[in-house]
Design a protein around this nucleic acid. Sequence first.
DNA 1: AATGAATGAGATTTCATTCAT
DNA 2: AATGAATGAAATCTCATTCAT
Lengths: 193, 193, 193, 193
Amino acid sequence: MARQKKMDEAEMLKETEKLLLERGYEGFSFKALSANLDIARSTIYEYYSHKDDLITDYMFILVKKVMDEMEKIKSETTGLDTMKEWLKLFMRYDQVHYMISMRSQLDQSESEIARNRLKQMDGLHGKMFFMLSNQVKKAKELGEVRDDLPNELVASFFFHSILSRPANDENIEGWANKLNDIIENGVRPHKES
Amino acid sequence: MARQKKMDEAEMLKETEKLLLERGYEGFSFKALSANLDIARSTIYEYYSHKDDLITDYMFILVKKVMDEMEKIKSETTGLDTMKEWLKLFMRYDQVHYMISMRSQLDQSESEIARNRLKQMDGLHGKMFFMLSNQVKKAKELGEVRDDLPNELVASFFFHSILSRPANDENIEGWANKLNDIIENGVRPHKES
Amino acid sequence: MARQKKMDEAEMLKETEKLLLERGYEGFSFKALSANLDIARSTIYEYYSHKDDLITDYMFILVKKVMDEMEKIKSETTGLDTMKEWLKLFMRYDQVHYMISMRSQLDQSESEIARNRLKQMDGLHGKMFFMLSNQVKKAKELGEVRDDLPNELVASFFFHSILSRPANDENIEGWANKLNDIIENGVRPHKES
Amino acid sequence: MARQKKMDEAEMLKETEKLLLERGYEGFSFKALSANLDIARSTIYEYYSHKDDLITDYMFILVKKVMDEMEKIKSETTGLDTMKEWLKLFMRYDQVHYMISMRSQLDQSESEIARNRLKQMDGLHGKMFFMLSNQVKKAKELGEVRDDLPNELVASFFFHSILSRPANDENIEGWANKLNDIIENGVRPHKES
DNA sequence: AATGAATGAGATTTCATTCAT
DNA sequence: AATGAATGAAATCTCATTCAT
C-alpha cells in the first residue's frame, strides 16, 4: 500500500480527488497529476505501480473515512437523530456519489491490486448499508419509523437524498434540515395541521 | 459482408446505450461499437464524424423521449398523481441518471456539433425541471403539498428518489408505490395511526 | 482518359485547380471536390479512377495550354519580342510554378496512369524549355542577346522572373515591362546614360 | 534499443529537412521520421507534440540561420557586392524556396505553437525583404543601381534568381557570377561593345 | 527516492477506393 | 451515368508503463 513515504502522499491523494472530480476517470491521468504536483511522472510509480491502484486507494480511504465518522456518530446519538447526523455527514462527503458512479469503470481493471481493493471497498460499502439499515431497524423499535417500510429502502433514501440540492447552496444546515424533514414527514400536509 | 445494407441507425443508438451503460464514457469506443454492430469502424464515421456527436445524439434523443412522455402524462393526470406517474417514468428510464453523471466529461468536447447538442440538452433539462417544479406548485394549490417546502427541492426529490432501489428488483409497480409513499408521507409513523 | 462525358468535366478541372491552389496536394481530396461540385464522391470515379489521375490530368492540360499559346506567340513574333510575350503568358498562368513545386509529390504515385502522364508532362516541359532556349539562341543570332550567356540560363531567367511580384499587383502590363526591362538591360545604370 | 540515450535534436531536424525535401509536407510523417531515426514514433512526441510544431521549428531555424549570415555579410561588404554575396548565400540555402512554397499548407495548422512560430517566421521574412530592399536603396545611392526600378522588385529579383539553375550543377561560383552578371547588366549586348 | 528518456499499445479520425443498385 | 453505402489502410496523437541512472 506504500504509505508513509517522504513525498507528501496526502497531497497526492488530495490532488487525485481534485482531478477525478474535475475530469472524471477518463480525464484523470498520471500526466496531469504529475504536472499538478510538479514532480516527474515516473515518480508516481514509486508509490503506485498502476493508475488504478492510486484511484482505488483514494476511493478506499474516502469510504473508510466516511465509515469511521459514521461509527463515531453512531456512538453519540440514537434513532433517527443518528440518521440525521449521517445525512449531514453525507453532505460533507458528497464526492462519494460521484465516485460510486465511477466505480463500474474500474471493474475490468488490469491491476489485481486495484481489483482487490475494489472488493474491500465493496465490503465496506456493504457494511455501511448494513449500518444504515440497522439504524432504521432500531428507529423502528423506537417507534420513529413506520413498520411497513423496508429498512433498506429507507436507508437508501437517506443516502441518496443529498443529491437533491437547492439552487442556491447557501445554508448547509438549513438544507440538511429540509431534507430530513421531507424524509421524516413527507411532502403532504400533515393531517392534523 | 453485407455491403450496401443500410445501417440501422436505431440499432446503432441502442448499442451505444448498451456500451455507455456497461463501460462509461471512457470505455465507450468506436472500436467496441463497430465490433458489436459487426461493421467497419469507419462506417460509423459516415453517420457521426465525432465520437461525441454520437454520444450526445443518443443522450439528446433519450432526454427528448422522457420529456415527451412527461408531457403526455401531464395532460392525463393532475397534482401529485402526475408526479407519481412521472416517478414511474423515471424508473423506466433510469439510465438518465447515469447519463447526467457523464455529461460533465463532454463539456470540453472538440466537436462543435456535440457542444451545441449539449446546449439543447441543457435547455430540455431545464424545461424538465421547470415542469417538475411547476407541478409541485400546482399540487400545493390543490393542498397536496406542504407550503413550507421549496418547489425545486420537492421536484428534485421525486427525480432522485429512484436511485433508491430495493435489493431485489422484482416488482416495479410495488417499488414505485413505496417510493411515492415515502415522499408523500415520510418515514415517520403518522401521528393518528 | 475518359473525356467527353455528360458531367461537365471542364468544371471538374476548374474546381480541381481551385482546390489545388487553395490547399495544395495534401489538402486536395475527392471528398472536398465532390462537395464543391455537389455530386457524389463515387461519381468522380466514373471519370478518374485515381486521385492522382485527375491531378496529373489537370496539370497536363495546363502545361499543354501554355505550350499551345507559346507556339501561337512564336508564330507571330521574333527574337526578344517573343520572349517578352511569353513572359506575359507566364504571368497569366502563374499557377504553373505552384504546380511544378507540387510535381515531386506525385512521383511515387501508385497509379500507373498518373506516372505515365507525368512522363508525358516532363516531355512537354522539356520541349517548353527547349523552345525557350532555342528562342534565346535565335535572339543571339539577331544580336539581341549577349553571346557569353548560356541559352538555358537566360531561358530560365525569363521563366522564373515572374516570381518577383511587386507589392501592389496593380498593373500587369507595367509589371511585365519592368521585369522585361531588368532582364534585358540589368539593374545597373547604363554606361552612356 | 538504446534506451536512455538522449535523442540528438540536431539530427532530428536534419532528418526532418531531408524528408521534407524528398516528400513534401504531405509525404512527411512521424512514421517515416521515426523509421529514419530508428526510434519509436511516440518518442518524437516527447519533443514535439504536433507534427506542425516540428516542421515550423525546422523552418524557423533555417530562416534564422540565413538571416544571421545575411547580417554578417552586410557588415563586411557594401552596395551591390553585398547583394552578390547574399546571392551566393541563397544558393547555399536553396531549400528556403521550397519551404516557402510549403508554408501556405501550414496556415490552418491546429497547433497554436506552430501558428505562433509561423508569425515569427513571417516577421523574419519581412525583415529579410526589408534588408534586401534597403540594400538596393543604398546601392542606388552609390550609383550602382538604376533609379527608375522599384527597390522591392530588384530585391525580389536577387532572391528568386537562384531558381534558374544551369543543367549541370558543376561550378557554384561560376553560376553565381553568371546570375549576378545578368541581374546587373542584363542579357542584351552592351551598347558600346 | 527521484527522474529523464523511451516506448508500445491503442484511440480518434480521414480518405481513397470498391461495389451493388 | 450516377449514387449511397461500406470499408481498409494509414496518419496523428495520448498515455500508462518501463528502465537505467
